[in-house]
Deep mutational scan, measured.
Amino acid sequence: RGITCLDHENEKVNMYCVSDDQLICALCKLVGRHRDHQVASLNDR
């Protein structure tokens, strides 16, 4: 089922925000508060 995003409840987390040490979803990176932050794919970890 996967872990859902805290900010976007219908989205699954699939990225890690290095700047905030937090799991995020694609919407967080595209339009959310993490858009200018350094992120890594969970597949890279």
Rank of each mutant, 00 (worst) to 15 (best):
D20L: 00
C25Q: 00
R45S: 13
S41H: 07
C28T: 01
N43A: 14
T4H: 09
C5S: 02
C17N: 05
R45A: 15
C25G: 00
Y16Q: 15
V18Q: 15
L30P: 07
D44E: 11
K12S: 14
D36N: 02
C17V: 02
D44F: 03
C17L: 00
Y16L: 08
T4F: 11
V31P: 12
K12V: 09
C17T: 04
M15C: 15
A40W: 07
H8W: 00
N14V: 10
H34A: 02
N10Q: 04
D21N: 12
L42Y: 08
R45D: 09
T4L: 03
V13I: 14
N14Q: 14
E11F: 05
T4Y: 14
E11A: 06
L6E: 15
G32M: 00
A40M: 05
V39I: 07
D44A: 07
R35V: 10
Y16V: 12
H34L: 00
L23D: 13
N43T: 12
L23G: 12
Q22G: 07
K29T: 13
C28Y: 00
L30H: 11
L27K: 15
H37I: 00
L23C: 13
V18W: 06
C25W: 00
L27H: 10
V39G: 06
D36M: 08
R35Q: 08
C17Q: 03
A40V: 07
N14W: 02
M15T: 08
Q38P: 09
N43E: 15
A26L: 04
D7C: 06
I3Q: 06
V18T: 15
S41Y: 02
C25F: 02
K29H: 10
S19M: 09
D36P: 04
C17W: 00
R45L: 05
D20V: 00
L27C: 10
D21C: 07
S41M: 05
R35W: 01
R35P: 06
D20Q: 01
A40Q: 14
L30Y: 09
E11Q: 08
A26C: 13
C5K: 03
H34Q: 04
D7L: 07
E11S: 05
C28W: 00
K29V: 07
H37T: 04
R35F: 01
N43V: 10
E11L: 01
L6K: 15
D7H: 11
R45W: 07
M15G: 13
D21G: 11
L30V: 11
V18P: 11
L6I: 15
Y16I: 04
S19K: 10
D36G: 08
L23N: 15
L6N: 05
S19V: 10
V18M: 13
H34E: 03
Q38M: 05
Q38D: 14
N10S: 07
D44L: 03
N10L: 08
L42F: 07
H8L: 01
Y16M: 04
R33S: 08
R1Y: 00
V39H: 13
C28A: 00
E9K: 13
A40F: 06
Q38L: 04
L42E: 14
I3G: 12
S19P: 10
Y16D: 09
N43W: 03
E9S: 10
M15V: 04
Y16W: 10
Y16T: 03
R35G: 11
E9T: 15
H37R: 02
V13G: 07
M15Q: 15
C25L: 00
L6S: 14
E9L: 12
K12P: 14
V13Q: 10
C25E: 00
D44Y: 04
V31T: 14
S19F: 07
S41C: 09
M15R: 08
C5A: 02
